[in-house]
Design a protein around this nucleic acid. Structure first.
Ligand code: SF4
Ligand code: SF4
Lengths: 158, 158
DNA sequence: ATAAATTGGATAATCATTATCCGGTTTAAC
DNA sequence: GTTAAACCGGATAATGATTATCCAATTTAT
């Protein structure tokens, strides 16, 4: 799992704490998350392209959630950042000497890997930003979250 | 998914076709699989360290299965090659400003990722070399497999 | 007009994986 | 015994993907 996805999820969780119409600008977020500001912009850009968040250019600009938190699955963020290329790229092995036709490239292993990957994705599809946020609030982290919300209010714009 | 694991699985599948006491030497296998010979040796070495296969040094040496194919899970091969480090490395984000204690690093996302990974591993644990081999034989690939077995008999040693 | 923010492209740094090389050890065969 | 053919293991280079930086262009509140 690449750190870019992780940071993106946290970013979206932060944006989810924003009141309506407010935005956070990228350097504030990356500062809090501890990511490289310039690279983090690229991540945000991908989230924008995937229609998960909105960007407001210009002074007092920044980023805001575009969809409802119930409609943003962790999987959506994963795809936005990494693309939908599968973890496993079937290489059609053993075809050298044996001269297989193209649809003979089963390969049994490929099917297994695909199934494993689907199973992995299923977990990421199940959880949404809303459900994650709920967990964070309900858990033993109430203090933490109120601190976070205070921080958000201090740093948001508009 | 790294190609090293894939190649290793195919290697083990090939070794599984060997009659008792026979071995294949590494260059023959890597040749058939289409892997770089020198790197492939490293892969085989890891499989040896994990006690999945045995190596016979010296002239007429080579590699042979050590365990029964029923006792080699695809997951075992994965761990042998890549180690048991998880795909996701929890980075304890957002702790900067908020000064969390160490066990406050939940993090909700980490739990989710761990669950996803477990689900992924479960599929790999379910399948063994024996069950894979069975699939290959039963499928529409009978011709292919008989060719493979012929090739194995021609290239094995002892 | 100006300052502050995002956008997008080009490019460099970093890191894990893959690949190569070489001297050392073991074993079969002559 | 000597030799040839294989594995062993450590050092090291090449590759490729991810991460990071820089800069000119565009947008917008003041
Ligand atoms: S998985 Fe299918 S195509 Fe690949 S080697 Fe086995 S039988 Fe052949
Ligand atoms: S996941 Fe837990 S530790 Fe991480 S930011 Fe959320 S509440 Fe804090």
């Amino acid at each position: 799992m690449k750190t870019g996805v992780e940071q993106s999820v946290y970013a979206v969780l932060l944006l989810n704490m924003l009141p309506d119409k407010a935005v956070l600008h990228s350097e504030v977020i990356s500062g809090q998350i501890g990511a490289s500001p310039t690279y983090f912009q690229k991540l945000l850009r991908k989230l924008v392209s995937a229609d998960l968040i909105t960007s407001v250019p210009g002074v007092k600009g920044g980023f805001r959630l575009k969809k409802d938190p119930e409609d943003i699955r962790v999987y959506d963020i994963y795809v936005a950042i990494e693309g939908q290329q599968s973890l496993y790229s079937p290489s059609g092995i053993l075809s050298d000497v044996l001269e297989l036709e193209y649809d003979d490239r089963c390969c049994v292993l490929g099917e297994l890997m695909e199934e494993a990957e689907e199973s992995w994705k299923a977990v990421l599809k199940r959880e949404t930003i809303a459900s994650l946020a709920e967990q964070v609030e309900s858990d033993r982290f109430v203090n933490h979250v109120t601190d976070l919300k205070k921080w958000v209010e201090e740093n948001m714009v508009v």
